[in-house]
Nucleic acid binder design. Structure first.
Length: 561
RNA sequence: GCGCCCGUAGCUCAGUGGAUAGAGCGUCAGGUUGCGGACCUGAAGGUCGUGGGUUCGAGUCCCGCCGGGCGCGCCA
């Protein structure tokens, strides 16, 4: 069973108080129209203001034409009455009014006790939130073409996409993780030409691929493939390139697996053409009157949808553009039954966002069902100088190399703790150096420390209690219980915003609170077995919560470190 | 030129229109004859790029300006 976040319980309590205040005549009938404000509660920055605060009275001042403090007083009186008459029925113990009209609320101990007991009784359900959108989503990310191994320029897309999928799943959505690649065409032929040249003992062509991995491919090139490629009349570059692309793709898959990033579906651009998706999409646009011919090319009249110019979909030489494949892919994805498509793109692709959504709309799909998540670009610098990440020039740092230096958990945390639309300067040397100082270790340390305490307790014959009822009177316990009980709200916010940095910030806060608790409250104490049992229970709930937070980010929660 | 994103502590970054703007790292000063010192306590450090506007209230919303990034192909 999913326990609702405390925030929701508090909101409901205020709603009840409001309704009773109206019924008793203390407050007027609320406005029925849009000027009726929704009850909003927040966690105040200053703990002395209580566990929750609401600005409802200030929002009601204008429609009620009353002083905010008077409204707040009426609401507080009803909240206090409920707390006095039926304390078990309300999450709130105290309600205070503060200028200029805040309603400051303090949670009852039984509310916190119930939350802790819930986490301990059903760890799997702890932190789960009600599905906000029960839809089927396709998330396409990374999608680097198989012309070379993934490099650190692909890292952000991989982690951002993976984290997005995890957050969507936490929100109850069905997610398909998709990788789109092009293993035909000029780039692949070029890769093949580079491999073939080295195989013959010739230098790589000027416009070929120069990375070390090309030489590795030559070493792995089977004689059978080479013989086939060099047979008379054979398309040498194409055949070698096709083999090389497959080989590179296997490597990409391994690299991603090392990042704990998995994909459900790999779709090749060629298959979209071969299976007729592109042709059908163009036809669909034509039927709807959004296509015309000019200068021998076929154009999509995107200006009808607000674009500043129309776009070519079939070139005058008969070849479809990349955009044509995009359009075909949209129909192919929707054809598989998805309710929603998300593209995870680098911000440098923002110019194509409107184009693809316009095409979707032109084909009769809801453009709102086509969403692009743009992440800001990462500038790679070394000694303060920007370095280019060029596969063709062979000047890049592979993802595998980066990971061997800084570790998956550290890298995941790095990207999870930053908003997608802030640009990042990534100094490789600095990243290595700072890896040891990554806050992820601070959080993991708290988890390992609790695991150690539990082991120690077991040696002393102490077991955790199943709840902490009656033990939250003291400050260390109360502070830790409050921090743990907030967890479902953090997940709810992360799901709503489709962001993860709230989770990392919370994890640090919870770890900090635990370390303070550890300092002030001795957990393993055979002289006080009942108190030890309660503190072990609280520590256990903390451990579950830390593991859940880390797990949602794909980060390990070690028992020792 | 047009469009999108960004500008918050020395650095890297948080901050659903709310109260005295926060965290990590770094710097400085302290702390353990007890369960993990990868820990804890404290200090210094901010005209939230800038000028207007909206609001009871603006780091947050709107407009201008300054600075930075990116995009504006019958490339992919």
């Amino acid at each position: 069973m999913i326990a609702p976040p405390l925030r929701s319980l508090v909101r409901d309590a205020i709603d009840r108080a409001w309704a009773r205040a109206v019924a008793s005549g203390a407050l007027p009938e609320p406005p029925a129209d849009a000027s009726r404000p929704a009850v909003a509660v927040e966690r105040p920055a200053d703990p002395s203001h209580g566990d929750f605060a609401s600005n409802l009275a200030m929002r009601l001042a204008r429609p009620y034409r009353m002083a905010p403090l008077a409204i707040a007083s009426a609401l507080a009186a009803e909240l206090a009455r409920e707390a006095a008459d039926s304390p078990e029925a309300t999450p709130i113990a105290e309600a205070e009014v503060a200028a200029p009209g805040f309603l400051n609320l303090r949670l009852a101990d039984h509310t916190l006790e119930a939350a802790i007991a819930g986490a301990l009784a059903e760890p799997d359900a702890w932190g789960q939130v009600a599905a906000i959108r029960a839809r089927s989503v396709n998330v396409e990310f990374v999608s680097a073409n198989p012309t070379g191994p993934l490099h650190i320029g692909n890292a952000r897309g991989a982690f951002v996409g993976d984290l997005l999928c995890r957050v969507l799943e936490a929100g109850g959505q069905r997610v398909t993780r998709e990788y789109y690649f092009n293993d035909s065409g000029g780039q692949i032929r070029n890769l093949g030409a580079s491999v073939a040249a080295l195989r013959r003992g010739e230098p790589v062509p000027d416009d070929g691929y120069k990375g070390e991995y090309v030489a590795d491919l030559v070493g792995e090139l089977p004689e059978r493939v080479w013989a086939e490629a060099t047979a008379s009349g054979a398309d040498t570059d194409g055949i070698v390139g096709h083999w090389a692309a497959g080989r590179v793709r296997e490597g990409i898959e391994r690299s991603l697996a090392a990042l704990s990033v998995r994909f459900d579906v790999w779709t090749s651009e060629a298959s979209l053409h071969d299976e007729g998706w592109v042709d059908r999409a163009v036809e669909r646009l034509r039927e709807r009157g959004h296509v015309y011919e000019q200068d021998g090319a076929i154009w999509f009249r995107s200006t009808d949808f607000g674009d500043d110019k129309d776009r070519v979909i079939i070139r005058s030489n008969g070849e479809p553009t990349y955009f044509a494949a995009d359009i075909g892919y949209v129909t192919e994805k929707f054809g598989r039954g998805f309710d929603h498509l998300i593209y995870v793109w680098g911000a440098d692709h923002h110019g194509t966002v409107a184009r693809v959504r316009n095409a979707a709309q032109a084909m009769g799909y809801d453009p709102e069902a086509v969403q692009m998540l743009l992440y800001s670009w990462v500038r790679f610098v070394r000694d303060g100088v920007e370095v280019s990440m060029s596969k063709r020039a062979g000047d890049f740092i592979t993802l595998d190399e980066l990971l061997s230096e800084i570790g998956v958990d550290s890298a995941r945390w790095f990207f999870a703790s930053r908003s997608v639309n802030t640009g990042i300067d990534f100094d490789i040397e600095l990243a290595k150096k700072q890896s040891n100082e990554n806050p992820v270790y601070y959080v993991q340390y708290a988890h390992a420390r609790i695991a150690s305490i539990v082991r120690k307790a077991a040696e002393a014959g102490l077991a955790p209690a199943s709840d902490v009822i009656g033990w939250l009177a003291d400050a260390p316990e109360a502070a830790l219980a409050r921090a743990v009980a907030r967890f479902p709200e953090v997940i709810e916010d992360a799901v709503a915003a489709e962001e993860t940095h709230g989770i990392t910030a919370y994890a640090i806060e919870l770890a900090t609170t635990f370390h303070g608790f550890y300092r002030d409250a001795r957990v393993v104490d055979p002289q006080a077995p009942e108190r030890s049992a309660a503190r072990l229970a609280l520590a256990g709930a903390t451990r579950i919560t830390l593991a859940k937070a880390l797990g949602l980010l794909g980060i390990s929660a070690p028992e020792s470190m």
